[in-house]
Design a protein around this nucleic acid. Structure first.
Length: 467
RNA sequence: GUCCCGUUCGUCUAGAGGCCUAGGACACCGGGUUUUCAUCCCGGCAACAGGGGUUCGACUCCCCUACGGGAUGCCA
């Protein structure tokens, strides 16, 4: 039997390089990527750099590098709209020939005045088509406008939202070519989706109202229909669209803080989508389980505490080797060589859960690699009232021959019982001596981690500090 | 203003007319384990925006209102 030929699914992420890669953008790219992969399709990237004023190569590189390093690699080399001008011009000419576009010589001032009048009259500001039947010729001050049908409606069938209807009377004649001859966003976008054989447009819901305009351009060009999915927006805690004003937005900031790529992706995927009671997802799970039709319609607030928790989950799934490898750069930033410790593996393994992020864990490791600069004042006040006790403990530990956890614990326990002291009264002063705070792995283990000599030294240091 | 999209615990969400005394997770609070902290375990708090319909029955369907968001550019 002849195999039924299904169209290969092609999705694309089309950022404009006017800023660094935004986590909202990462989410859009992720959904595009996953949708393509689960359908054996292709995921493409297109740089929409037609705004020469604001687009920079630097931002473009940032976006491209960050996307690929987080694993969202495109299946083809990304294309730049700025290099495809002739293709858009050709398409525009085709629309002119079909009679679906016209030249308009309204000045910016004319338009402003028109909009002002419309607003004052309580109407929707939109181009009124005044040049439509003037039969103007092209000149330096004309723009090319699409002749949008004056009646009828466009129905967008959205994978997430279902049917969305737009009355053509609500749409004005958008500009296809600027007066300098350059093509605008809508034209380029439509032409490239066709040229790149895109089948499915997955983008933010801020593009919903752009969709009918773009469909009109497609129609004028005779292009086939596309599938659409408009994602709910990622919001800040103020319920406003996520921006620099209400949160850290660039992907790099999160990575620098020590969040795992997989945890960032997991968090972003769970923003607007869920599958049963499961919370922890890796890329493979997403490709298997994700369903674009299950995506939520309402915007979702990006909550850092969720990322924290998910990161701790992903962190605990890491092997010790992988954990160490990824932690290393964060220690380097603190001028610490991870291997500059006698019991590296034991140390790192016992400190894995000390924080939710690599940077936090690195910070809590500092006392194990470097001399203590300061002691937790509250801890001192509470547990080190008696210097003599600490002196006694120092002598006691100095006498331990075989420096191992059991021996140390036994010695301390005997001392505590003999002196009729509480456990913390004995242990905390030692802990503070070693780490500067009351936090550390089990005390016997901690003392072993430091070794006899260094442990005694640090107790002496605290004694000196106190006098 | 107009058009479009949306509205379940603080947050992310489950819920496709009876399974809902509205479930889970995070956060938070309390307890246990840990000689400390973290981890881990147990428990608790907490929501269907409001009003009308439709129906024997509505978180679920329809309408209105309110609120939020988006669009309304020779930006993308």
């Amino acid at each position: 039997m002849e195999k039924i030929l299904m169209k290969q699914i092609v999705t694309r992420f089309a950022p404009s390089p006017t800023g660094t890669l935004h986590i909202g953008g990462v989410r859009t790219a992720l959904f595009n990527y996953v949708y393509a992969k689960q359908n054996q399709g292709k995921f493409l990237i297109r740089i929409e750099d037609t705004d020469i004023e604001r687009s920079t190569k630097e931002f473009e590189n940032n976006i491209l590098n960050n996307l690929s390093s987080i694993g969202l690699t495109p299946d083809e080399k990304p294309i730049n709209q700025s290099e495809r001008n002739d293709i858009y011009i050709k398409a525009a000419e085709k629309i002119i020939e079909s009679g679906n576009a016209y030249w308009c010589d309204c000045s910016q001032e004319d338009l402003e005045e028109m909009r002002k009048a419309q607003t004052e009259a309580g109407k929707k500001p939109m181009y009124d088509g005044r040049s439509r039947n003037l039969g103007l010729k092209r000149s330096e001050k004309t723009v090319l406008r699409l002749a949008t049908p004056e009646s009828g409606e466009i129905i967008v069938n959205d994978l997430i939202r279902g049917e969305i209807k737009f009355n053509n009377t609500e749409l004005d004649d958008l500009i296809l070519l600027r007066s300098d001859g350059s093509p605008t966003y809508h034209l380029c976008n439509v032409v490239d989706d066709y040229e790149q054989k895109v089948t499915t447009v997955i983008r933010g819901e801020d593009h919903i109202s752009n969709t009918p305009r773009q469909i009109h351009i497609q129609n004028a060009l005779g292009y086939p229909e596309l599938e659409y999915a408009h994602l709910p927006l990622v919001l800040g805690t103020d319920k406003k669209r996520l921006s620099k004003r209400n949160a850290a937005t660039s992907l790099e900031e999160y990575r620098d803080q020590g969040y795992l790529d997989s945890a960032i992706l997991n968090t972003l995927a769970r923003l607007g989508w869920s599958q049963g009671d499961k919370d922890v997802f890796y890329m493979d799970d997403l490709i298997k389980d994700f369903d674009i039709r299950d995506v939520q319609k309402a915007g979702a607030i990006f909550d850092i505490t969720k990322l924290d928790w998910l990161n701790s989950q992903h962190l605990s799934d890491l092997s010790l080797d992988s954990f160490k490898e990824q932690l290393e750069p964060f220690l380097q930033k603190l001028d610490i060589d991870i291997n500059d410790h006698e019991h590296v593996d034991l140390l790192i393994d016992s400190m894995r859960t000390s924080d939710n992020t690599f940077s936090g864990i690195a910070r809590s490791l500092v006392p194990y690699y470097k001399d203590i600069k300061e002691y937790d004042a509250k801890a001192l006040e509470k547990f080190v009232a008696d210097k003599n006790l600490l002196e006694e403990l120092k002598d006691l530990l100095s006498e331990v021959e075989d420096w191992n956890q059991d021996n140390i614990n036994d010695v301390l326990k005997d001392f505590q019982i003999k002196k009729e002291l509480s456990v913390p009264a004995v242990n905390q002063p030692i802990r503070i001596s070693l780490t500067g705070s009351t936090k550390s792995p089990g005390l016997g283990l901690t003392l072993c981690l430091f070794g006899k000599e260094k442990s005694i030294d640090r107790i002496s240091n605290l004694l000196n500090f106190l006098s």
